[in-house]
Design a protein around this nucleic acid. Structure first.
Lengths: 225, 225
DNA sequence: TGCAGTTATATCGTATACGATATAAGCACA
DNA sequence: TGTGCTTATATCGTATACGATATAACTGCA
């Protein structure tokens, strides 16, 4: 998920830091609300503040970080409102985009999507849960065929990244992995067959299932508090 | 449209430059494909490269600028593919978001949306076409009630900004202003009345009408070339 | 003791300076 | 005269340095 569209711009320090800090936020290593002092991060990474600032500004554009002028950056907090928005947006965009992807995909894209699915499922079987979020995002994104739907893929990539924190936090314990796998396989089969309508319906159902699990957790949490 | 969500972060140089360069790109003053050399811009604005870089990176995140490591920034080119994506995404998101906005809006939001509509129409009557794009975007965004749908509004704001260049370039000459005004007024009336379903349908029709005008121009252009 | 005003400090935002990279110019050679 | 390599140059990316801002600590007064 840390991919930067066109060129491998990952040679620059800013881009490396962007990927690193993003993964720490998504994984929870940098907790919601935590301050991100520029000098401290720069010292920790052995660089100056400038690439740190550029990375944090990029993450702000992605919605993972808040910035207050002259008061610094902090990890964006999690809110139920944002969770609802993320999944409403995904439901509005992703099924259609995947349907188009099913039509646009050539031989090459089918191969890489298949590879992404295998990587994801292998990681899940090996219990590498820390990789699951990124690999799940990569699989979902591959279904869109990013090269042929650049803007759509950019928007969706951000939404998938934003969704990760909520899924990690709230749905990790529940036993949804095996159900998600079945949903993925049905979706992938329709997509590979070029069945746009079928892929769209299955994608919609898959996203909605995750969304409803999340809402249920919210409800349970509300009762407890 | 140059609004920066939460705090008036427009005190910092980067933010001012972001707004300035954005408006120059959207207005066409910086043409598609044009190079954006950091040193030259810094000299022109009387600042150092650092706030210039931060502004350009922000605009890259917004999709108005491309960057190639060690080769610099340039204004993103216009493509038919992107135009299709922008309007497909808007159609998928905006009507729903406006329907929700119609439900969420309180007295305050109704007032500011009404004000945005008046500003837009006044600018059109006075022939201030250079302001029309921003004001149109502000009106569309107000219908969403950004304060209550933060992420959705952020995504839509970017799409509206991206759309501006295509609309300016291709639909300026055609006499759509008066039809757009009628569509706006019907939409606003439904929205003000809290008629979510009506607002959704009218928003969808309005966006689709613009989209179809654009497609027609593309077709005409394809014939000529 | 509590509060308003003032000063001190830490962090931020940006200017300056410099090493690194990619492209363009120049050169030797075929 | 054209082609592959070397060198030169312009621009980029980042380190260092410093002035600006917001918050926190402090002081005097009610």
């Amino acid at each position: 998920m840390g991919s930067e569209a066109v060129r491998p711009l990952v040679r620059t320090m800013s881009a490396q830091l962007t990927a690193l800090v993003r993964s720490r936020i998504v994984s929870g290593a940098y907790a919601p609300g935590a301050a991100l002092p520029q000098d401290a991060l720069a010292a920790e990474f052995g660089v100056s503040k400038i690439p740190v600032r550029e990375a944090l500004l990029q993450l702000r554009a992605e919605g993972l970080v808040d910035v207050f002028a002259h008061r610094g950056f902090q990890v964006r907090s999690l809110t139920q409102d944002e969770a609802h928005e993320i999944f409403r947006l995904r439901l509005a965009l992703e099924p259609q985009a995947i349907a188009r992807g099913a039509q646009l995909a050539g031989q090459l894209e089918r191969q890489s999507t298949g590879a992404a699915a295998r990587e994801l499922h292998q990681a899940l079987e090996e219990g590498r849960r820390e990789d699951a979020g990124d690999l799940n995002g990569a699989f979902h994104l591959a279904l869109v065929v990013p090269a042929r739907q650049r803007l759509t893929a950019e928007v969706l990539q951000r939404l998938l990244t934003l969704a990760q924190r909520y899924v990690r936090l709230h749905l990790q314990p529940t036993g949804r992995a095996s159900r998600a796998r079945r949903e993925h396989e049905a979706l992938l089969a329709a997509w590979m067959a070029g069945d746009a309508a079928g892929a769209e319906a299955l994608a919609s159902a898959h996203i909605r299932a995750t969304y409803e699990d999340l809402i249920q957790v919210f409800g349970a949490h509300a009762e407890r508090t």
